[in-house]
């Protein structure tokens, strides 16, 4: 019985600082063999968790990015029609018989992420990103695969999983997910990290930023998140901001308001958000964070 704190440490080794509830959710999802559904604002590190998990477990990461209109041909498998047409033509010119057996064989099958995930020799991490962007019909389809881990291809027969992938689904709340999907998964809500966690993330990712500046940066970003904004800066934005500040050779956020307002471009990404935090406000927030 490996404990969930071990997993938390492993993830940290790979640069991902997970909050206790998130590490526990991931641990149980691996132990119970259930998919894990992660919800949260954009930029809190949902996708990153899958990456860190695959690094910690030393296995492949297979990613399925969902979008509206995603269908089975894009997500599961597709026949390579162009090749089939060529093969038919070649066979008829050579006067061969029995070409149809060959046409529907593995050679002409294009694997898409879901099929690829269940045919790996070692269990990979399967990341189904932004499931709420896909249509509800696709959700139903996915449910079937997630419960049986087998896929039926009419021409080939049923393909059963050689290894059960570790499944992580992420959602941004574009629409409500069905109860059936929620019930099939374990659930974790990922929040913006608290200051201590965020400092740990920053020092993990950018060790060159000295502790005092790191504390300032995190304090400042946390203060910016408390403002009324259309799009609050996520962890990724915070890291960009830190990289920008460090890259410009700044040692103290309060030293140069001009530099601060320039680097805000990494944090605030809409016009109205830029307008909401003019240079004076930014300087005030930075002053308080110090």
């Amino acid at each position: 019985m490996s404990d969930w704190t071990d997993l938390q440490n492993d993830l940290e080794q790979d640069g991902y600082v997970a909050a206790p509830d998130l590490a526990m959710a991931l641990h149980l999802s691996l132990e119970l063999g259930r998919p894990l559904l992660l919800e949260g604002e954009a930029g809190v590190g949902k996708t990153e968790l899958a990456r860190a998990l695959s690094a910690a477990k030393g296995c492949d990461l297979i990613r399925l990015q969902c979008y509206e209109g995603l269908d089975a041909a894009q997500a599961i498998y597709e026949w390579n029609y162009q090749r089939q047409l060529l093969a038919i033509r070649a066979a008829s010119e050579a006067g061969e018989r029995g070409a149809e057996d060959r046409l529907f064989s593995e050679d002409y099958l294009l694997e898409r992420p879901l099929l690829r995930a269940i045919r790996q020799p070692t269990p990979p991490v399967l990341l189904i990103d932004e499931i709420d962007r896909a249509d509800e019909e696709f959700e139903a389809f996915l449910l079937e695969i997630l419960s049986d881990f087998q896929i039926t291809i009419p021409e080939l027969g049923t393909i059963t999983a050689t290894s059960r992938p570790m499944v992580i689904l992420t959602a941004n709340g574009t629409r409500d997910l069905s109860d059936a999907l929620r019930r099939r998964c374990l659930y974790a809500y990922v929040d913006y990290p608290d200051p201590a966690t965020e400092r740990a993330i920053l020092t993990r990712r950018h060790p060159e930023v000295e502790p005092r500046l790191a504390a300032q940066i995190v304090g400042f970003v946390q203060a910016v998140r408390r403002e009324e904004l259309e799009k609050k800066p996520g962890v990724a934005e915070m890291l960009d901001f830190a990289a920008a500040v460090a890259g410009l050779g700044v040692n103290d956020l309060n030293s140069d308001p001009a530099v601060l307002s320039v680097t805000l471009a990494t944090l605030l990404k809409t016009r109205s958000d830029r307008a909401a935090i003019p240079p004076e406000v930014a300087a005030r927030l930075a002053g308080k964070a110090a």
Binding site: P20, D21, M24, E39, L186
Partner: peptide
């Protein structure tokens, strides 16, 4: 789930929260 974690109040809470919450 509880059979797979240490039985201790905080851990129990985290484990049950993961399993029983859906939104």
């Amino acid at each position: 789930a509880l059979s797979r974690v240490m039985i201790e109040p905080e851990t129990t809470r985290l484990a049950l929260q993961t399993v029983l919450c859906g939104c």
